[in-house]
Design a protein around this nucleic acid. Structure first.
Lengths: 205, 205
DNA sequence: AATATAATAGACAACGTGTTAATCAAATTA
DNA sequence: TAATTTGATTAACACGTTGTCTATTATATT
C-alpha cells in the first residue's frame, strides 16, 4: 500500500522517466504532452495536475538536477585542501565527486546535454562550475589572478570547457566502456596537458 | 528592377534575418511561422512557398553555414604547411580563417550556438572540426598517434572544445570588445597552454 | 502588350494545448 | 468498518498554430 505522497512521487517519476526515454529520439519541441502520458501510462489530465505545461516540467527537472550539482560544488572541495595540494593534483577528489554525480544521473544528463537537449541548461551548469572554480581560486590564493593576460571570462571558460568536453564525450558514448576512475583520470589529463600536448604535437623542453 | 531570382533571394533572406532576430529572445520551439512572416513583412503563405515548414528552414540554414565551414576547413590549411610549422605555431593562419568566418556570420552563429540554439548543430560543427584536425594530423605525421594513452575520441574532443569554448564565449559576449586578432591569439593560447596554466595554478620547471 | 511567376489574402481541416466537470479508485481518518 | 479526503481518469470544450488550397494582385520576362 502506497501513501498519497508515494503515489504522487511515483507518477512524477514516471513522467520524468518518459521524458528521458522519448528525449533520446525526439527534441524537446517535438515531444508532446500526449507522448509523455502515453509512455508513462497515465492520463493526459493527470499531467496537468502535476505540471503547468511541458516547459514547467522541464524547468523543474533542470532546477532539481541543477541544485543538486550546486550542493555538490559547495560541499565538494574539502576545506583541508590548500594551494600546494591543488598544484600537486589533489583536485582529483573533487573531480571524482563530479564524475560520480554525472554517472548517477547519466540518463538525464545525457538527454539535457545531448543533441536533443537544452543549451540553456548546459550554460547554467557551466556557469556554476566557473563560479566554483573562481571562488576556489580566490579562497586558495587570496585574490584570483590569471597569467598570460587572458581576459578572465575566457580563462575560466577554457578551464570549465576542458572538464565539460570530456564529460560530454563520455555521456554521448553509448558503448560506456570507460569506468568512473578512467573518466576522472582523463579529466585530470585534460587539465594538466595543453591541447597540443594531448595530440602529441608539441614537446616542451 | 530586381530579377525573379533576386526577389526570391530577398524574400528568403528576410525570413532568415527574422529567424536570427527573433532567435535572440525565443527558443526555436517558441518561434511560430507567424512570428517570422510578421517580422519579415511577408505573408504566411509565402513562407510555405519557400520552405516545407519551420524545421525545413532551420535545416537549410544549418546546412548552408555548415557546408561553408566545411569548404573553409578543406581549403584552409595551406599545403605548404608541414609538421615543423605546426609545431612552431604556424596553425595561426588556419585559426585566423576560422575566426574571420565566425566573425562574418556572427549573428547567425550566435543564435545557433547560443542558449536558444541547436545542440545538434554544435555537434555537427564540432565533428567537422575534429575530422579536419584528425586528417591534418595524419597528413602531417603519416599516422595519427596520441600521447598519454588518451582514447582518440577524447583527445580530439579536448582539442576541438578548446577552440570552440573560446569562440562560443566570444559569440556570447555582447560587448564585442575583442578584435578578430585578439580572438585568434586567445585561441592559440588555449591550444598551447594547459587549462591549469591558463589559470596560473601550476608552474612547469 | 501578353505571359509567366512571385507574393498576397482568406478560408479550411487537423492537431496539440490547457481547462473544466463528472466520476472512479485508493489511502486516510474517525 | 464506514465516511471522507485526495489522486487519477475520462470526455468534452475553446483556442491557437499548422499546413494546404484557391482566387487574386503585383511584378518581371518575352
Amino acid at each position: 500500500m502506497a501513501t498519497h505522497q508515494e503515489r504522487i512521487t511515483q507518477t512524477e517519476t514516471s513522467i520524468v522517466d518518459a521524458l528521458v526515454t522519448v528525449g533520446k529520439k525526439k527534441s524537446l519541441d517535438q515531444i508532446t504532452v500526449s507522448d509523455l502520458t502515453r509512455i508513462s501510462g497515465i492520463s493526459r489530465g493527470t499531467f496537468y495536475l502535476h505540471y503547468l505545461d511541458k516547459e514547467d516540467l522541464m524547468t523543474k527537472v533542470k532546477n532539481s538536477i541543477s541544485s543538486k550539482f550546486q550542493i555538490l560544488l559547495d560541499t565538494g572541495i574539502d576545506d583541508t585542501m590548500n594551494y600546494q595540494e591543488l598544484s600537486s593534483g589533489q583536485l582529483y577528489p573533487m573531480i571524482e565527486k563530479i564524475v560520480a554525480f554525472v554517472s548517477d544521473n547519466k540518463a538525464l544528463l545525457g538527454f539535457l546535454f545531448g543533441s536533443n537537449g537544452d543549451p540553456a541548461f548546459a550554460s547554467i551548469i557551466t556557469d556554476k562550475l566557473q563560479k566554483a572554480i573562481l571562488g576556489e581560486l580566490k579562497r586558495v590564493k587570496g585574490t584570483a589572478t590569471f597569467r598570460s593576460d587572458l581576459p578572465k571570462n575566457y580563462a575560466l571558460c577554457i578551464v570549465t570547457n576542458a572538464i565539460m568536453s570530456v564529460v560530454l564525450t563520455w555521456l554521448g558514448d553509448d558503448s560506456d566502456s570507460l569506468s568512473e576512475e578512467e573518466l576522472s583520470k582523463i579529466i585530470m589529463r585534460a587539465l594538466y596537458l595543453s591541447p597540443y600536448e594531448v595530440l602529441g604535437i608539441t614537446s616542451r623542453k
